[in-house]
């Protein structure tokens, strides 16, 4: 027999559960909890979607003037360290 998790205990493990870093026994307990607790099921599902929505975002292009200043600074540095001859 294993003890049931409270919602608070479930919440503490939520992140590790989503990252799949919990051991098998804890994982089973968490899964029992979500099968019986609709609130925690929704929190789990929407937290998972939160992570997914950010993971899919590609970085925007750098504004051209920022990029051009970056490349100028890099070129200047490279020229300064380039050994003559």
């Amino acid at each position: 027999m294993t003890s049931l998790l409270t919602c608070k205990e479930f919440m503490q493990e939520l992140s590790d559960y989503l990252d799949a870093t919990v051991d098998a026994e804890l994982r089973r307990k968490l899964e029992v909890h979500i099968s019986e607790c609709p609130n925690c099921f929704v929190i789990l599902d929407t937290t998972k979607k939160t992570i997914e929505v950010y993971k899919g975002v590609q970085p925007q292009p750098i504004p051209p003037e920022v990029y051009s200043r970056l490349m100028k600074a890099v070129e200047k540095k490279l020229a300064a360290t380039h050994k003559p001859g």
Partner: peptide
């Protein structure tokens, strides 16, 4: 881990 959990939950709340 602790900060990540809190960040994720706060974002979940805001995005909901």
């Amino acid at each position: 881990k602790s900060r990540l959990l809190r960040a994720r939950l706060q974002l979940r709340e805001k995005l909901t």
